[in-house]
């Protein structure tokens, strides 16, 4: 695929790993590089990923993987950017400055998985109420012992 041959050149400054998952090209970056990688993905005219399809977090117990699904409306190609954050203190730079649409996705990810998005303009709880303890998206969240009232 043209995209996977293009990526090493575009991301020459960053430490990346290119893989694939079914029909998607997956770029794995260091957590601290997420913001830079996304900025490049959006601004580089050869990539032009102007649309954030989805931002998800997957709890693999040994790592929290933050996954950015990108899409380019102009070039109609797709990319997945992944970053594995340590589960004890997951910190990833925010990409709200890149796509405004990332705002609520990041707040949701913070609510459910406790990933801290550094530089997020308004990191208030979104889905959960203020003062909710714990992060219910995590595999370790004690659902059966959890007493709501």
């Amino acid at each position: 695929m043209a995209l996977s041959s293009l990526l090493p050149e575009v991301y020459s400054d960053l430490d990346i790993e290119i893989g694939a998952a079914l029909d998607e090209v997956v770029v794995t970056v260091r957590p601290s590089d997420v913001s830079a990688a996304c900025r490049i993905a959006k601004d580089d005219p050869r990539l032009a990923f102007d649309y954030l399809r989805c931002l998800s977090v997957v709890d693999y117990v040994d790592r929290l993987e933050v996954v950015y699904h990108l899409f380019s409306l102009g070039r109609l190609h797709r990319l997945v950017i992944k970053a594995a954050a340590p589960p004890d203190s997951p910190r990833v730079p925010s990409v709200v400055s890149v796509w405004k649409g990332a705002d609520w996705f990041e707040r949701e990810a913070h609510d459910l998985f406790g990933v801290v998005f550094e530089g997020h303009p308004n990191p208030a709880p979104l889905l959960l109420y203020e003062g909710f303890e714990g992060h219910p998206g995590l595999k370790s969240f004690p659902f059966h012992e959890y007493d709501e009232w």
Binding site: R53, C54, S56, V57, V58, D59, V67, H69, G101, W104, F105, E108
Partner: peptide, 23 residues
């Protein structure tokens, strides 16, 4: 959008829904 992570078992490992209304 649906993001599905499978660990090979009969239950998904993670399902993430990208809801259009949310965005």
């Amino acid at each position: 959008g649906v993001y599905l992570v499978s660990d090979g078992s009969d239950k998904p490992y993670r399902v993430k829904v990208r809801a259009p209304s949310f965005a």
